[in-house]
Each structure stands twice: as structure tokens, then as C-alpha cells.
Write a protein that binds this DNA or RNA. Structure first.
Lengths: 338, 338
DNA sequence: CTGAAAGCGCTTACAG
DNA sequence: CTGAAAGCGCTTACAG
């Protein structure tokens, strides 16, 4: 393998560089004979076109930017794992692999300060990337929204009202219906006194909470909500304080990490799960199984999110996609005892 | 922000494009006056050079390729998290952030089949990337070694004997001394009957095992090794079967995931940790703390690995770096009772 | 110190 | 169907 250009391929094949280019780009108007002859030389020498030259000459770049926020807006604790969550890695992995089938590669950027957004425009303006996928950003960032309206950008879990007549591309998790399904499931099992330990002011949390409220209201049950900040230790404390007094028969934790704290506390309080009290999580963290914590939970497939993002990037027809959360029935929820 | 080129900057500043280029690239031979004048226009219009043009014209690309293997060589189980481990995300995060300070960005590739390595050369040959970092690959892949000898590539945890006179760039974890330190620590606590649950045939495992053996030998203790395949469930079974019969006073698990299985089994066997039996892990997984598992363990800082990789990529002087594992004292190890 | 010109390796109207 | 030529937006010897 060495450096070889269209010029040399052209000479070897006795055609012009134009024709070589046509073969490379699979244009219609070149006879099968010529095509074969040129392709043979290309294969023989293992020629691949120079990426920078073809992009400069006007071809679309085959790079997609993945922009992940690592901005600690909500927490200040040591529990903040931010960017290092397995979630992000799975997302990258899904996207990168899918991009392969579109002959694209991924440029990964990690944004630690919202101000950096201003310097990102050149990636799109100068066509360094053909498109972008943004994930993990706080809400109501006008710079982000502006960028997304101008270029080929997909926003993941960035709930902007999409009125349909703009070209914003959005991929969202359906946390709302997820919260509803989780709560309804508990109600169907006969539970009426259900505590919801919600997360914080992030939209995912607000929506899960809304789903909970909708379901409770539907069945004329009184909602009880306490905020656990998506933290294991806070959920633990809440459980310790709340449960002995109010005796709920089920707890719906806003995420699995809090469910872990809930379970820890319940065990210390000598409650059996699910016989004495049912626990519902959200997220389907795969690490819970390592600990024999068979938590019934809600799962939004990251694969779905990644796949929908890539599709939206390349396909014109849609510009919005919502990924439903599915109930994962395990053994932390049971029928309420009479 | 709109499309603007050197040509227009040149006109606006009343100089030639050559001079504009000299200012952009911070060349010496341009008087401060001219420099200021040109820079002002550049700032005013928010001009940034076209990346493809400057690379095509001979400038080094400012992209570094990160190539992560997602090749399931050892396992076939559902426990295989492969690429999705938090380890990889932390590595990417460290590298990307460090790259920023060198004005470089990261192109992330995930290799699912070793054959793909053959098609990777064009990244380097065509200078799409200025260098590469490879992690997670199996050993003795000749294609990888060949590539690494030809281009600016850093291999992470890819133990090739580096005889010093070639230009292979290697960053390794010191699993050997890590295994030794862990074992020595147990011995210093008075333990003599120490079981080592090793991983598999990966080098990290072999080296941790070697460190264990060295320490045991040094103190004339008999080594006992069983292979747990780095899996939680297997370590669990081993503990269940082995401990009641052979009554070790300490178990050194080859990684934290196995230590979790060990602890689960010990609890079921009604052993107290660390009063009855001490448990030592390896890796310092941050998730263990969520479960009140205060495992004493060994930690190789991923930050070190990432930082050393980036340094090796950009600096000429060194071509080898080894990252030591540090003892993280927590509460799963105690003095042996007399 | 500075500009005109060549060149990097492609693609694509244009003309035939 | 195919080639000559212009152009993408830079950088860099070269000459002055």
C-alpha cells in the first residue's frame, strides 16, 4: 500500500482522471467495459480517494459529529458520573456501528462548558461534519436550538416543542408514558398507596412524574411525591423516614439508582420485597443484576435512540421520533396482599 | 457567521493571501503591524480556515483516531458488556478532553471484526488522522503490530515486547506489580491461606496471577489458583464450592466483578467480611460503592492511561509508559484472627 | 518582509 | 460516452 492518485490510475487504465472519478463515484454514464478496466487497476493498487481532496472539491463529508455534554448542572456530589455513564458508551457504540453502514464515521466531542457551543458552528459551516448528534445537554439552551435549526442536527432528549413546520430533528424518550405505564402496572397489582420518589428538575424526571400523576388521577388515587434527586443516598434516606410512618405498599423510584437505595433501606427496615412492599425502578440498568437485585423497571432502548438518531440524520421524510419505554417485569413487584 | 475565505480576508486587509496565511499560522516573518491589521479582520468576520483545504495543502490533520475493539474473544455469555463498559467511556472522555488542549479532535471507531484492521491503513496513509490510539484488542495481532510500527500509533495494554530500538508506542497497566501489591498486602495482614480467583487467558489476568505467585513464593506460601473467567457468576460458584472445604482466610479476586460474586457467596455461606474472611478485588469499579460494597481493591487510573497515551502521541522523546496500580484500602480486608 | 504562482487530489460543468 | 480545464481553499517554496 502506497500513495497513489487518480492521475496514476488514469495513466495505468489509459483513461482521463474524469473517467476515473466517474468510476469511483459510480456514475451512470460509463460503459461497463471501461468501468471494469478502471476498477481492476483501483483494486490492484488498493487505491482509496483522498478524503480531503474530494471534500474540498464539493463532495459531502462522511463525518458525523457526536456532541456529548459533560456539564454538571444539577449535582455537586461525588456521585456525578456524568459523561462516564455506560449509557453514553452504548449510545456511541450504536451510533458508530450504524454510521458504518452509511459509510460515515464519528467525530466525538465532549462539551464541558455551554460556552463551547458558540465555537461549534464551524464544524457545520465549514462542512467538517455532514451532521451532528447532540445528547445530554440541559434544556432551553438557545444556542443549541439555533444551531439545530440551521444545520443537519439531531437533538436527543432535548424537549423543544416541535410545531412541525420547522426542520428541527428530535429524538425523545417517552418518559411520560413510561411513568404512566409503571404506575398503572402497580395499580393493576392492587396497590393504592404508591409513593413516587421523583428525580430532579430535569425533563426526564418531570415527565416520569407527570405520567405517575396521570395514572394516579385516573384511578382517583392520591399522589405522593418526594424528590430524590436521582441519587441513591437520598432515596435511601427518604425511604427510611417516610415508609415507617406512611406505610405505602409500593414505591415507584424515578430511576434504578434510587431504587437501589430504596431496597437497601427497606431491607434494613426488615421489609421483605416484594411480599411486604413492591419496588418499581426506571432505566433498566444492567448492573442491577450483578447484585441479585431483580428490579422490575422501565426500559428505553438506547439502541432505539441511536438508530432513530442516525435515521433522522440521513433521511428527509421524518424529523421527529419518540422511543417508548417498555416494562421489564422482574421480581420486585407483587400483588398487594389483602 | 458566513462563508469567508483567505481571499476576502486578504482584500479587506489589503495584503496578499500569502500574508493572511502567515498570520493564521503564526509565522515569524510578519511585522506586528501587519499581523494586527490582518488579525482584526479575521476576528471581525469570525473567519476560521477551511480544514480540508489546509490539510490538502500539506498541513497535518488535527484528528486523532481512537480505535476500540469490541471483539468478544473470551466470552459467549450475556455478561459480556464489551465496548459498553464505563471504562471505555472514561478513556474516551479523558482522551478527548486532553486532545482539546492540543487542538485536536477524536474520530472514534469501533472494530467488531479483526479483519477490519486491514482497511484501517488508509486513515494513516491518507493522513485522515494524525495518529491513532488502539485499545481493547486481543494480543498477538500481527496486523495491528505492523500498523503500529509504520504510523504514529499508541497501543494501550497490548503487551508486545518493546526492545527499545523500534518506534512502537505502548501504554501498559502494571498488572504484574498490582497483583504483587495486592497479595503482599494480604500477607502483611497475617493471611497465609490465600485463594486467587484469576480471570482468563487475557494478559491482564495472566499478569495479576503472576504477581500473586511472586508474592506467595517470596513468603514461602503455597499458591492456590482457580479461574473465574472474570465473571461474577463463576466466581460465586467457585467460592461456594471451594471455601467450605479449604477454608482460606482471604480471597484475592482478579477483578471487582468477581469480588462481588465472592462476597455474595460468602454472605450466603454466613461468613462475615472481613471478620471471618478477607476479600480483595482489582479495578476499583465505582459502581461497587452504590451497593455498600466497600471492597479493598487495586486501581489503575484510566486518567493516567489516557494522559500517557496522548503524550506519547505528540511527544517524541518517550515511547513507553507503564501505569502503576494503587492500593485502595477499604473495609473488605482485615488482620487475620489468631 | 511580501506577493504571484504552483500545487495538494479530487469533482464537475462544459464541450465535443 | 469522455477529456481538458477550472475550481474547491488553503500553504509554501521562490523571487524580489
Amino acid at each position: 500500500m502506497f500513495k497513489i492518485t487518480t492521475k496514476q490510475i488514469a495513466e495505468l487504465a489509459n483513461v482521463s482522471r474524469s473517467t476515473v472519478s466517474r468510476v469511483i463515484n459510480n456514475y451512470e454514464n460509463v460503459p461497463i467495459e471501461t468501468k471494469k478496466k478502471v476498477q481492476k487497476i483501483i483494486d490492484e493498487y488498493g487505491y482509496t480517494p483522498n478524503y480531503f481532496a474530494r471534500t474540498l472539491a464539493g463532495k459531502n463529508p462522511n463525518i458525523i459529529g457526536i456532541f456529548l455534554a459533560d456539564i454538571n448542572t444539577t449535582f455537586s456530589s461525588n456521585d456525578w458520573i456524568g459523561i462516564n455513564s455506560p449509557y453514553n458508551m452504548e449510545l456511541i457504540s450504536v451510533i458508530v456501528n450504524l454510521l458504518k453502514s452509511y459509510n460515515h464515521v464519528a467525530l466525538v466531542n465532549i462539551i464541558t462548558d455551554i460556552k463551547e457551543l458558540k465555537n461549534l458552528e464551524h464544524y457545520f459551516l465549514k462542512r467538517i461534519v455532514a451532521g451532528g448528534i447532540f445528547a445530554g445537554f440541559p434544556y432551553n439552551i438557545s444556542e443549541l436550538e439555533e444551531l439545530a435549526r440551521k444545520y443537519n442536527i439531531v437533538l436527543i432528549d432535548q424537549m423543544i416543542s416541535n410545531d412541525g413546520n420547522d426542520n428541527l430533528k428530535l429524538v425523545n424518550s417517552d418518559n411520560n408514558s413510561g411513568g404512566y405505564i409503571a404506575t398503572k402496572y402497580l395499580i393493576d397489582k392492587g396497590h393504592t398507596n404508591i409513593l413516587h420518589i421523583a428525580g430532579d428538575n430535569r425533563l426526564s424526571s418531570i415527565q416520569r412524574e407527570r405520567g405517575y400523576k396521570t395514572a394516579m388521577k385516573e384511578f382517583n388515587l392520591e399522589p405522593n411525591i418526594i424528590y430524590g434527586m436521582y441519587r441513591e443516598d437520598i432515596a435511601y434516606k427518604i425511604t427510611k423516614n417516610y415508609v415507617p410512618i406512611h406505610k405505602p405498599s409500593a414505591i415507584f423510584a424515578g430511576n434504578d439508582i434510587m431504587a437501589i437505595g430504596v431496597i437497601k433501606a427497606l431491607k434494613e427496615l426488615m421489609f421483605r420485597i416484594p411480599e411486604d412492599i413492591s419496588v418499581m425502578g426506571f432505566d433498566n440498568l444492567n448492573l442491577t443484576k450483578w447484585f441479585n437485585l431483580d428490579i422490575t423497571t422501565m426500559s428505553v432502548s438506547i439502541k432505539d435512540i441511536g438508530e432513530n438518531s442516525v435515521k433522522l440524520l440521513f433521511e428527509e421524510k421524518d424529523n421527529y421520533s419518540i422511543c417508548r419505554a417498555n416494562l421489564i417485569e422482574r421480581s420486585s413487584v407483587a400483588e398487594k396482599m389483602k
